[in-house]
Design a protein around this nucleic acid. Structure first.
Length: 453
RNA sequence: GUGGUUUUAGCUCAGUUGGUUAGAGCGCCUGAUUGUGGUUCAGGAGGUCGUGGGUUCGAGCCCCAUAUUCCACCCCA
């Protein structure tokens, strides 16, 4: 049969794994620095844990797992004959691959509520699966790197998320990226004012197109979606929103004066900015963007999204606050907030910008050549000693032609080669070749170790 | 889920209105060089043209189906 892998999945070769590890390590280091601790959850969850958490579209993107055994035997006859897959899903599948890390985390918190100390700050780096159609920066299997805190209402958490984004992405070498921030309460406030909460998504989508289709285009689209002339007049300050973050806040304060929830949203954003003023950011630009809605329907406060300004790519991170997530699993009154890094997209961005250091790909530091059986025997304690000293080394496993062995070292990017032949064995001075410069020198084993350490 | 696109040597890709034996570059192997890679030279191996049907005297090329790649929409990391 012809080998292949499922659509939207990928193999990772040594160089790619090294680079991905570099990304994960960089991000995890920052997570730990901010006081977060790692957890892991199973690859599969009960299907009932996941359904209904991501909206109707999200439910369709969940990879379901067929029950073991004869999964059709117990299925309802009538539902089966109806040939409607939605009817039989729960009869033939009770497990699914995790769709994100936030819902499993909420489940974890509820199940372990007696063991964890609040506020609980956790990070989690694991793959997730979505039955989406693949395209640029979109995979069916990809890694998320999440930090979430539960049991803390403080907006300091939100401010620190911005710091985490800034530090991690800056450490990875990204020079120009924007952290967009919005607040669900502001969106609710706008809906309050025009009295059409059900159209809030159409509204944000339309306003988002301002720079593409202009003010008239936006109003035209709004009218098509069912907004009256009075509505549009009330929306005017939001559509024309521009300038600095403080400019925007000033305008909105007036426009949302009549909405309690809207005012609360603005207040929250201001508090976050206030916290932020005590921290110094490296490369991140923070931008208030009221068109940021995000599909996940459980956000209740701040909403974040991160985009690179150097590369055309979907968002490389996102998150927000959700007051009622664990409520779905029966634990009321526990607030949570978190953000996620899309490691695979960050990888694609870094690749395009050539940001991976070469050092991330060096593995073996020295290759010992293998001339013949006698030299091999002589080399065994040498390679053992090098390894004992912590130097990655390998002995070529056959007495092949030297040319072949040198080519191997070259292909594997091994920086040093030790040659051991008759003369070296006689004198105890081994030949150390620097593959980069081509220089060679005769050294005893201790001198080589000192040189490579 | 909707619309489009890609698929030919290990890799990146040519391949004329359908016409004999399908090409190039890079890589790989062998030798020049029995103890020296990355440069050079000579030679060599490697293809069911994504898969399955169809049209035709004849298909890499045309038609249908299907898989796959990438892209846009929707949504999202």
């Amino acid at each position: 049969m012809k080998p292949g892998i499922p659509k939207g999945t990928r193999d990772f070769s040594p160089v790619e794994v090294a680079r991905r590890t570099y990304i994960f390590d960089t991000i995890k280091t920052v997570f730990r620095k901010f006081g977060y601790q790692p957890i892991e959850t199973p690859t599969m969850e009960n299907l009932s844990t996941l359904t209904g958490k991501y909206g109707e579209e999200g439910d369709q993107l969940i990879f379901k797992i067929l029950n073991s055994g004869d999964y059709l035997a117990k299925a309802d006859e009538q539902k089966l004959s109806a040939r409607n897959s939605k009817l039989v899903t729960f009869q033939i599948s009770e497990k699914a691959l995790r769709y994100d890390l936030t819902v499993p985390f909420a489940r974890y918190v509820v199940m372990h509520q007696n063991d964890i100390a609040m506020p609980f700050k956790r990070y989690q780096v694991q793959p997730v699966w979505r039955a989406d159609r693949p395209q640029k920066g979109r995979y069916r299997e990809f890694y998320q790197c999440d930090v979430d805190v539960v049991g803390s209402e403080s907006l300091l958490n939100e401010a620190e998320f911005i710091c985490i984004y800034d530090e991690a992405l800056s450490n990875l070498g990204l020079k120009d990226f924007t952290i967009k921030i919005n607040n669900r309460k502001i969106l609710s406030g706008i809906a309050d004012i025009i009295g059409k909460p059900e159209l809030i998504v159409d509204m944000t989508v339309a306003i988002d197109k301002l720079d593409k289709i202009g003010y008239d285009g936006v109003t035209k689209e709004l009218a098509e979606k069912g907004f009256t002339a009075t509505d549009i007049e009330k929306l005017r300050p939001f559509i024309e929103l521009s300038g600095t973050n403080t400019d925007k806040l000033d305008v909105m304060k007036q426009a949302l004066a009549a909405s309690e929830i809207g005012k609360k949203g603005i207040e929250e954003i201001e508090t976050i900015f206030e916290y932020l003023s005590s921290f110094e950011l490296n490369n991140a630009k923070v931008e208030l963007d009221i068109t940021l809605a995000r599909g996940l329907n459980y956000y209740t406060g701040a909403i974040f999204e991160v985009k690179s300004n150097e590369v055309q790519m979907g968002s490389i991170g996102g998150g927000g606050r959700y007051d009622d997530l664990t409520g779905m699993f029966g634990l009321k009154g526990v607030t949570g907030a978190g953000i996620s890094f899309g490691a695979d997209r960050i990888y694609d961005v870094m690749l395009e910008l050539n940001l991976f250091p070469d050092s991330a790909t060096v593995s073996t530091q020295v290759l010992i050549t293998n001339f013949d059986k006698l030299a091999e025997k002589y080399a065994l304690p040498v390679v053992a000693k090098l390894r004992k000293e912590g130097i990655s080394s390998e002995l070529y496993p056959a007495s092949a032609k030297l040319q072949k062995q040198m080519k191997y070292a070259d292909a594997k990017n091994i920086p040093f080669v030790v040659l051991i032949g008759d003369e070296e064995m006689k004198s105890g001075k081994l030949t150390l070749k620097n593959m980069h410069s081509g220089d060679q020198e005769q050294l005893d084993i201790d001198e080589i170790i000192a040189k490579l350490k």
